[in-house]
Amino acid sequence: MVLIRDDVVRPKAVLDLWPLRKELAFIKREGGWVKIGALATIEEICSSFLVRDCRYAGFSDMCSHFATPYIRSLATIGGNIGAAHPLSDATILLLTLDSEVKLVSIRGERWVKLDKLFLGERKLAKDSSELIAEVRFKEVPENSSTALLKFDRRWGHSMGYVVVAVYAQIKDNVVREVRIAFDSIGRPFPERAKKTEKFLRGRGLSEDVIEWACTEVLPKEMKRISDYRASAEYRLELSKVLLRRALLRIKSRIRGG
């Protein structure tokens, strides 16, 4: 709508998907999966079972910092994914949950891993005739939790200089599984920090390990950009700090249950 108003794009027709909300606005658990309809709004996620479950506490982190209340009532999870923008908070969190996206067209439907969906800024590995219908992820085991951290100077409309989301399963103080996603690792869309994940997997989450992961491993795979909002150096430094905080937050969340 904004692009049309500004006369940046002149589409021949625009299709309002809102009437499909009758079918596509669900947030439910089913057969070991958590399924979210593409037209579920951020506000609906913020009042769903997800924010009350310690394992999915990342959603509760997301809710308090997602744009503004009046945007949360309109913004949908499908739109957040479809925007393919580095600062799509919900998408970053869903990446850490190893989510899959259902694409539907008249030819049928197919599931695509969320981390295979992005090709570039606002570019998706999907045909223009395909519609994002649903996103789902497997229920995570006990002893695991999620966290999302975002840094900006303000609350309302905070886009975040850096956004990081982490999922981890920690048992007997050893990291069984970990997935880390940033707003950007080097390319202009949200991605996983796979080298840092690999380093952390199987290790005890001690202060030294966290320190090493943040200051030595992460910078090797991350390339940040400078723009009018923040410099690359500042963004990289923030990424390290936020990753450390996110790991510590998850640790205490798992311990707290």
């Binding site: 709508m1 904004v2 108003r5 009046y70 945007i71 009532s73 309109l74 409309h157």
Partner: peptide, 22 residues
């Protein structure tokens, strides 16, 4: 006109929405 300033919000069915994006 792009949902950033909040000047155009109205309450629609109990929800706060920016009327420039609806």
């Amino acid at each position: 006109g792009r949902g950033e300033c909040g000047a155009c919000v109205v309450i629609m069915d109990g929800k706060l929405v920016p009327s420039c994006l609806v």
